[in-house]
Computed example of a mutant assay.
Amino acid sequence: MSAAHTGVPSVLAHPLPRPVPADELAACPAGEVFRRVGDKWSVLLVIMLGGRPHRYNELHRAVEGISQRMLTRTLRGLEADGLVRRDVHPTVPPSVEYSLTPLGRGLLEPLSALADWAVRNAPEINEARSRHRARAGGETAPPP
């Protein structure tokens, strides 16, 4: 970061063109990561695997509401992104264990910072939501 940008968050250091071109948005490496960690299950699985490796069925039992299909798709996506390693052990039947790669471990720090921010600011966010609902005539806003 240059001296002129000291104290400026990196996401603001480079102004976006207006309008943002769709192809630029699609090609943005940060956007790709945000889409991956912004889905419903990826962050939860990364956090769980951050504690220790898990077998597939262990993950499926531990995450209420996730279907086998969605667990498989999410793990495959995390594996394709290099965040999760899939190890097949030569047993009968074969057992599969998932763990974080060093790249996946590196994601734990920014996820922790975001989680800490969310917990710290939850009361203010909840108050803002209440004020918004009151201004909207009591209509329920869609969940975030």
Rank of each mutant, 00 (worst) to 15 (best):
D81A: 09
N121S: 10
A141T: 10
T74P: 00
E58T: 12
L71K: 04
V33C: 07
P29F: 10
P110A: 02
E32R: 09
P123F: 13
I125G: 02
R69S: 08
A13N: 12
F34A: 07
T140W: 05
S112L: 10
R85A: 04
R61V: 07
E64S: 15
S67K: 02
S99Q: 12
S67M: 13
G82L: 09
R52G: 04
V11Q: 07
L44F: 06
R105T: 06
Y56C: 04
R105K: 15
E124Q: 00
A136S: 04
L71S: 01
E97L: 08
G138V: 08
A26L: 15
A80K: 11
R133E: 15
C28I: 03
S95V: 12
A4C: 13
M70P: 03
G38T: 01
R120M: 07
G77H: 07
T140A: 11
G106V: 04
A22M: 03
T6M: 01
L103W: 12
L49S: 10
A122L: 11
H5E: 02
A30Q: 07
P144R: 11
L71G: 00
R18A: 10
R69V: 15
L12E: 00
P93D: 06
E32K: 14
G82M: 12
S42P: 02
E127N: 03
E24D: 11
A22G: 02
E97Q: 07
R52K: 13
S130P: 12
S67R: 04
L103N: 14
H14S: 08
L103Q: 15
R135T: 01
S99F: 00
R86E: 07
E32Y: 13
D23N: 12
D87H: 06
T6P: 01
P90A: 01
L78A: 05
P94H: 07
D81I: 05
G51L: 15
L44Y: 00
G77Q: 07
V96C: 03
Y98I: 10
T72Q: 11
A30H: 08
T101K: 03
R69F: 14
P110L: 01
P123L: 10
C28F: 06
G77F: 02
A62K: 09
H89L: 03
L108R: 02
A26N: 11
H132K: 15
P15N: 06
A26C: 09
M1Q: 09
Q68V: 13
M1I: 03
V11S: 05
A26R: 09
R131P: 04
P102W: 00
R35G: 14
P142L: 04
L114Y: 12
G138A: 12
V84E: 13
K40D: 01
R120H: 04
N121A: 04
I66T: 13
G31H: 06
P9L: 01
I66H: 05
R69Y: 05
L59G: 02
S112A: 06
L44C: 09
A134W: 09
G138F: 14
E124D: 04
E109C: 12
R76Y: 02
P102N: 09
N121T: 10
S112W: 08
V11I: 06
E139G: 10
E79L: 06
P17S: 14
E64G: 13
R120Y: 05
R52S: 15
Y98A: 13
